[in-house]
């Protein structure tokens, strides 16, 4: 007589995937036949038990609860930098840096002159910041004019109109950005620069 079925073979049996020679054993073994019946009955009982359907209002509440918890965690996590109220002012500040860097470029041809200011800023924001700190008076004047110009691109009400309640520390922001995020910021900067002024 062939050996009795192992536990996993009983599962294969009820799944219908047990090899024919092993299935043949069940027909000749009262113990295995009885166990097979028990397993089938238990499976049928298990499958008959539905999860009670919750109220239709429950499902949207799942989304709401998850969104609230995600927003709370985002306020302290790295994704804080990717939220609208942080990214927009960060882009705005980067525009300021761009303006000053461009001004520096215009008056100091011997200094660093990136061919693509947006991308350069996006890739090396900390470096551009240090350039800003050493900008000459003349360059600063020009830069301030450009900043004023760029600031007019903001909607009426400035940061408040954008729902911005706090400005991030740009050094921290720059250090926290990954290469991918810098690319995204560069794209955002470009769209901001190309936005028609009203």
């Amino acid at each position: 007589m062939t050996p009795c079925l192992t536990p996993d073979e009983f599962v294969d049996l009820v799944d219908g995937t047990l090899a024919a020679d092993r299935e043949a054993h069940v027909a000749t073994c009262a113990a295995c036949a009885a166990t097979a019946i028990d397993v089938r009955e238990a499976l049928a009982a298990a499958m008959s038990a539905e999860v009670p359907e919750p109220s239709p209002l429950f499902w949207p509440s799942v989304n709401a609860r998850v969104q609230a918890a995600v927003a709370e965690s985002a306020a302290t996590g790295w994704r804080a930098w990717l939220r609208l109220d942080v990214l927009v002012p960060m882009a705005g500040l980067a525009l300021v840096v761009l303006a000053i860097a461009s001004a520096i470029d215009a008056v100091s041809p011997v200094g660093p002159s990136p061919a693509d200011p947006e991308v350069a800023i996006a890739a090396e924001p900390a470096e551009v910041l240090s350039e800003m700190e050493i900008a000459s008076d003349a360059a600063t004047d020009d830069a301030l004019a450009m900043v004023a110009d760029l600031a007019s691109a903001l909607p009426e009400g400035g940061w408040d109109a954008l729902g911005v309640t706090r400005l991030p520390d740009l050094d921290v922001a720059a250090a926290a950005l990954t290469a991918e995020e810098r690319d995204a910021l560069a794209a955002l900067l470009q769209s901001a620069v190309e936005r028609p002024k009203s």
Binding site: V119, A186, Q190, S191
Partner: peptide
């Protein structure tokens, strides 16, 4: 300019 810069707007 990045050729693809405007093709990938940030979700915001």
């Amino acid at each position: 300019m990045r050729a693809d810069a405007t093709a990938a707007p940030w979700p915001l």
